[in-house]
Simulated scan of single mutants.
Amino acid sequence: MRFDGIRDDPGNSDAAASFDPLRPLLTRVAYRMLGSVADAEDAVQDAFLRWLATDRREVREPAAFLRRTVTRLCLDQLKSARRTRETYVGPWLPEPLLEEEADEDDVTLPLMLALERLSPLERAAFLLHDVFGVGFDEVAATIGRDAAATRQLAARARAHVREARPRYRLEREKGLEIADAFFAASRSGDMQALGALLAADVGMWSDGGGKRPAADRPILGFDTVLKLHRSLAVLFGKYGSTLVRTGTINGLPGFITREADGEVQTTALEIEDGKIVAIYVVRNPDKLQHLH
């Protein structure tokens, strides 16, 4: 939802001038909270409308005020989002975000999945403090808890997501090289080359959201993943799968393809010690509209 035409009103130009430099940061906060590009953009736009209605002369720190506004909007939305995800068809993955360069907050797809297991308040405390560097006093004011309780929320969250944080940074070029090799092997049916790329405990998650064919549960283990790709390679050979581009998707190397049904899909690869340990495929068209 966009209301950028509001800027045409000369009386609102100062509001836009102070808001626009903060929009990228606010969008990152909202996306990390919600896992949806469209929902994040809507939350930020709602915050802009509230900024227009605010007596801005009384706001000493616009960045803190707007970050607090966006976070509270996201907390409200997470309550309904959790109910929706309880009835979601198959594995749920966040909307894929294609990144032209490494994101400064270093939140990868596995970490975003770990955040899904937190309560909304734990998620907010962890993201604001540990990821975006906001002081506990401001975080406490944002989520409506005292500083001590906020520290406990962040500590619990930190313990839950510790294993999902990257242990070392994979060189971007090396990751994209592995992504290229995975695409070539999986589409050509070269199972020997594909097997050489996979870790023994590799897993695969496919999000079709009930809108497109996808596995309704995670595919776990080397033999099972390889067997699935052997079957998929037959379909790729018969109907085609076109590479659109490789790139970084939610902090992981991966690629976008256009499949036989004309729809795009994304594949992101979690890599450790040069081997693929997890494959994340998003096929739900509702989550891919922003990539067209």
Results as ranks from 00 to 15, higher is better:
Q152T: 15
L153R: 00
A154S: 08
A154E: 07
A154N: 06
R156V: 06
R156C: 01
A157D: 00
R158M: 12
R158H: 13
R158F: 08
A159P: 00
A159L: 12
H160N: 04
V161R: 00
V161F: 08
R162V: 14
E163K: 04
A164W: 09
A164N: 02
R165W: 09
P166A: 07
R167N: 05
R167E: 12
R167V: 07
R167C: 14
E171D: 14
K174Y: 10
L176T: 02
E177I: 01
E177Y: 06
F183H: 08
A184L: 09
S186I: 01
R187C: 12
S188F: 05
D190F: 04
D190T: 07
Q192D: 08
A193S: 07
A193L: 05
L194H: 00
L194T: 04
G195T: 04
A196C: 01
L197M: 10
L197E: 13
L198T: 03
A200F: 05
A200I: 05
A200H: 15
V202F: 05
G203D: 11
G203N: 09
S206N: 14
G208T: 07
G209T: 02
G210W: 01
G210P: 03
G210K: 06
K211S: 13
K211Q: 14
K211Y: 14
R217E: 13
I219P: 02
I219M: 08
L220S: 11
V225M: 05
V225R: 03
L226T: 04
R230G: 13
S231G: 07
L232T: 13
A233P: 06
V234K: 13
V234A: 11
V234S: 10
V234D: 10
L235E: 08
L235K: 04
F236I: 07
G237F: 07
K238D: 13
K238A: 14
Y239A: 14
G240H: 06
L243N: 04
V244N: 07
V244K: 04
T248P: 02
P253T: 04
G254V: 12
F255V: 02
F255R: 07
I256E: 05
I256D: 01
R258E: 09
E259F: 11
E259D: 10
G262V: 10
E263G: 05
V264W: 15
V264S: 11
Q265P: 03
T267K: 01
L269T: 13
